[in-house]
Amino acid sequence: MHRRIAAFAIAAALAGCAAEPPAPELVIGLRNPTVAFGGTSRFSAERFAGAWETVACLGSCVKSERYVQATEGVYLRRTGDVETPFLISAPGVLREMGGDDRLVVMWVDEGFRTAAIGDADGRWAAILNRNRKPARDRIKAATEILDFNGWDVSKLRVVK
């Protein structure tokens, strides 16, 4: 009798496990969302301001962009004819004013010539440079930073 009850209890427990919905599948697109990342402490609004060329990117990127310091703590990001205001919420973290976009400057070299930047949602990332002829060592460093921050650098493409 006890064996029947024990067998029934085990069968009921197994049936209960099978009835639970499966855990949601983790979809990894351009960036692994389980990897934490943040802005570089080296970020300086004054030094980051100016024109940048996109030399490599993931996702949908623009060929060039410009950052203009509008006021203390407010940046304007210009891409083509579009100008978007951002608040500097932390070193290297720019939050769109009146929107949901968040740009993260993950790395910039000491001379502010090359940078690794991406959006917090993992839709795009880019290696920016002040001109179209970046130094290989800085591109390598920016690529390593993107990889370290969870980006799929195998999908990184050169922008000409």
Rank of each mutant, 00 (worst) to 15 (best):
K63G: 07
V27S: 12
F112M: 02
V68M: 07
T54H: 02
A7P: 09
V82Q: 05
M106P: 04
G150V: 10
R4Q: 14
N131P: 06
I117R: 07
T40G: 05
M1G: 15
A15S: 07
N131M: 08
V68D: 00
R77I: 10
P85D: 07
V159A: 10
T54V: 05
M106W: 04
N32F: 02
L156D: 00
R47W: 08
I10A: 13
G59N: 05
P33R: 08
A126K: 05
L30M: 13
C61K: 03
A120F: 11
A15D: 01
A15R: 04
Y75A: 01
A18C: 10
A18R: 01
T71C: 04
M1D: 14
V105Q: 02
W151M: 07
C61M: 00
D109A: 14
A70G: 04
S64L: 00
G29D: 14
K140S: 08
M1A: 15
I28F: 11
G118N: 02
I145P: 06
A45I: 12
R132M: 13
E65Q: 01
V55G: 01
R136K: 12
D101H: 00
P33C: 13
R138V: 02
L58A: 09
M1S: 15
K63P: 04
P21Q: 14
W107H: 05
Y67M: 00
S41R: 05
R138W: 01
W107C: 01
L146E: 03
R123I: 08
R77E: 14
V105Y: 06
A9E: 14
A51P: 02
I88P: 05
I117Y: 02
K155M: 13
E25I: 11
G80F: 01
C61F: 00
R130S: 02
T34P: 06
W124D: 03
L103D: 06
F43L: 07
T79N: 05
R132Y: 11
S44E: 00
A45M: 13
G80W: 01
A49Q: 01
P24G: 06
A142R: 02
K140L: 03
G150H: 07
G39Q: 06
T54Y: 03
A15F: 07
A141W: 05
P22S: 10
